Computed example of a mutant assay.
Amino acid sequence: MSPTRIPDATLRTERLFSASPQQVFAAFEQADQLARWWGPKDFSNSFERFEFRPGGRWIFVMHSPNGADYPNESVFREIEPEARIVIEHVAKPWYRLTVTLSARGEQTQLVWAQAFESPEVAAKMRGLAEPANEQNLDRLQALLAAGGS
Rank of each mutant, 00 (worst) to 15 (best):
A122C: 04
F60P: 04
E14F: 01
F60C: 07
E78W: 04
A115R: 13
K41I: 13
A31P: 09
P65C: 10
F17N: 01
E73S: 13
R77M: 02
Q107A: 13
R57H: 05
T98P: 02
Q114F: 01
R84L: 07
E80L: 10
A132Y: 09
P131R: 01
R57P: 04
R5K: 14
A146V: 11
S2R: 14
R96F: 02
E117I: 01
A132S: 14
E73P: 08
Q22F: 05
N133W: 12
A145T: 13
E130T: 11
G105T: 04
L34Y: 10
Q22I: 10
P54T: 04
G39N: 10
I79P: 07
S18K: 15
D138A: 07
P21Y: 01
G67A: 05
M125Q: 14
P21T: 07
N72M: 04
H63P: 02
A142I: 10
K92S: 13
S20W: 06
T13M: 05
H63V: 00
I87W: 03
A113M: 04
D32T: 14
S64W: 03
D138H: 07
V121M: 14
A68M: 15
A129K: 09
A103R: 06
P3V: 14
G56Q: 01
R12C: 03
Q107M: 11
